[in-house]
Amino acid sequence: MSRFLPESHLEASSLLGEGTMDYWPEALALTALLIVFGLTAGPAGVLVGLLTAGVWYALGTPYAFAVGHVGIVVAFSDGLDPLTLALLEVPFVALLVGPLVRHHARVRAIGVALTVVLAGSALVWVGTSQLSLSVTALLVLGFLMIVSYGIHRLELVRLGLVRDDRDRAASETATEGRTQ
């Protein structure tokens, strides 16, 4: 675990930085978040931004996303136009992409992140304008599950962990013959 982050912080071991300075992308994203929230929602926005930054430090990016978006709903209780929402999402995307610069496969990882975010957001935008919110929500969940399952299958195929019936039968025969 990084010396800078607490044990409770949620991050993949491959993305952990060694020192405080390694977390400059996240610091940049959180600063942007504070500024954007302050500009769009005033002092309440700054409060939400600070809360989001604190949750990020303590628990990690997914929980910061959850708290930040609940904060948006609270701060903009009267409604929110799509442009402001898009503006508010920029620092969140930066927070999502920021740690990936520390990984050797950063380009592909950033590509995956942006693809999922853009495709998901487009689905929300199109869904809410054409369908009901509950149907859109189901579509979004289905989309995320398909992407996740696709990566899982990719890993199985690449590492040769997929076994067809013929392999399975051969393996069982070998196991029987192994201790004779």
Partner: peptide, 28 residues
């Protein structure tokens, strides 16, 4: 009835998918 929360769910889902992809790359 707030689509902004759905966008937040997309962001978290994207985070999860990327970590999954990185795990696969690291494992290979």
């Amino acid at each position: 009835a707030r689509p902004a929360l759905l966008v937040g769910a997309v962001g978290i889902g994207a985070w999860l998918c990327v970590r999954q992809y990185l795990f696969y790359r690291e494992l290979v």
